Each structure stands twice: as C-alpha cells, then as structure tokens.
Amino acid sequence: MLTVPPLRKPVLPGAWRAAAEAPTRWSCVLRLRQDGHEIRVRAERCAAGRLRATYPVGAHDVEVRILDDCPQHLLTQLLRTLTLSLWAADPSCRRTVYAAPAGDLDRIGAAEDAGFRHVVDVDLGQDELGLLVAEPEWVTGGDADHDRVPGT
C-alpha cells in the first residue's frame, strides 16, 4: 500500500493572491485572484483522489483541477505558476497532473504551453479526460523528447 504524504499548501509568487479553503490531509481548494479574476483550483494528491487508479501514481503526484471558468489567456500562466509553486512546496513531487476534457484542444494547448505533455486518455465513468503531466527537470533529466526511445 502506498503511503500518501500530506499536501503542503503552495505559495504563489507574483500577481496571484491565494487563500486556502477546505483543506484536508491530501487536498485543498485555492481561491486565486489576479487582474479582477477569481478562480478556484483544487490541488490533490493523485494517490488519494479520483486519479488513483488511472495510471501508476506516485505518492507525491498532485492533480491540479480548475473548478471555475478560467479565461484562456490566464490558464497557461495559472498552470505554470501553480506547478512551480507545488514543486517548491514539495521538492519530492515528481508529477503535476492536469486532466482536461478529452478533445478540448484549447485547454490541452494551454496546458502544453505551460510545459505539460499529454500522456493518456482515461474514462472515469462520467468523465473522459486527457491526462497531461508536468515533471521537474530532475525527473526528466533535461530530456524533453518523451516520444523518442532512448538509444535510437
């Protein structure tokens, strides 16, 4: 059985202001504000959440779920900033996961612009999602070409 560590609340730099709501041991809802926009985001350990059986989760993996409408021009910035903040709060975090509705090319594109890559599509029963992941450089070893077999 996988031991899931508590989720540490990320501290967002720059123009984003954040307040935590409804924290649990493995998740929290962040109410983020910037430029007149307010967006709620749920950060949750994947091993304790809805994605636990969808891929080989790591104990420190975190899903970032946007709960409110997020203007397209802010989504990339939000995902990038939040991911870096989660990694700073937990240096053992190997993966930040963003689950976009399958086929939603705008959200998938925004996540890819934030440094995420599409890994797999999953069916959660009521939702079909495309899982995108961002991994710190210490995990990828600086090799961003994930579609190439090493040594070829």
Score class of each variant (00 low, 15 high):
residue 102 A to I: 06
residue 67 L to H: 00
residue 51 L to R: 13
residue 79 L to S: 06
residue 70 C to K: 03
residue 71 P to L: 03
residue 64 V to Y: 01
residue 74 L to Y: 08
residue 101 P to Y: 08
residue 98 Y to E: 00
residue 98 Y to N: 00
residue 86 L to A: 09
residue 51 L to G: 08
residue 101 P to N: 09
residue 92 S to F: 10
residue 96 T to R: 07
residue 92 S to V: 07
residue 91 P to L: 03
residue 79 L to T: 05
residue 95 R to L: 06
residue 94 R to K: 10
residue 78 L to W: 03
residue 58 G to E: 14
residue 70 C to W: 03
residue 78 L to F: 05
residue 83 T to M: 05
residue 98 Y to S: 00
residue 52 R to Q: 14
residue 72 Q to N: 12
residue 53 A to I: 11
residue 85 S to G: 02
residue 77 Q to W: 11
residue 95 R to P: 03
residue 102 A to E: 07
residue 73 H to T: 07
residue 82 L to F: 01
residue 102 A to Q: 14
residue 56 P to V: 07
residue 70 C to M: 05
residue 78 L to Y: 01
residue 71 P to M: 02
residue 99 A to M: 10
residue 66 I to K: 01
residue 52 R to D: 12
residue 88 A to H: 01
residue 90 D to V: 10
residue 76 T to A: 15
residue 91 P to F: 02
residue 101 P to I: 08
residue 70 C to G: 04
residue 102 A to D: 06
residue 100 A to H: 02
residue 89 A to E: 05
residue 96 T to N: 13
residue 86 L to C: 13
residue 64 V to S: 02
residue 91 P to T: 03
residue 88 A to S: 04
residue 61 D to C: 10
residue 100 A to V: 03
residue 55 Y to I: 07
residue 59 A to H: 07
residue 57 V to D: 15
residue 87 W to T: 01
residue 65 R to P: 03
residue 100 A to Y: 02
residue 54 T to R: 12
residue 82 L to V: 00
residue 78 L to A: 02
residue 58 G to R: 13
residue 84 L to S: 03
residue 80 R to V: 01
residue 72 Q to T: 13
residue 58 G to I: 07
residue 93 C to G: 11
residue 60 H to R: 14
residue 71 P to K: 04
residue 77 Q to A: 13
residue 64 V to N: 01
residue 62 V to S: 05
residue 92 S to Q: 15
residue 79 L to A: 09
residue 81 T to S: 10
residue 74 L to P: 04
residue 62 V to L: 13
residue 72 Q to W: 15
residue 55 Y to D: 10
residue 87 W to P: 03
residue 58 G to D: 10
residue 93 C to P: 11
residue 83 T to Y: 04
residue 54 T to D: 12
residue 78 L to H: 02
residue 69 D to N: 05
residue 57 V to M: 09
residue 83 T to A: 14
residue 85 S to Q: 01
residue 55 Y to F: 10
residue 76 T to P: 15
residue 76 T to V: 12
residue 70 C to E: 02
residue 71 P to N: 03
residue 84 L to R: 04
residue 64 V to R: 00
residue 65 R to S: 09
residue 86 L to H: 14
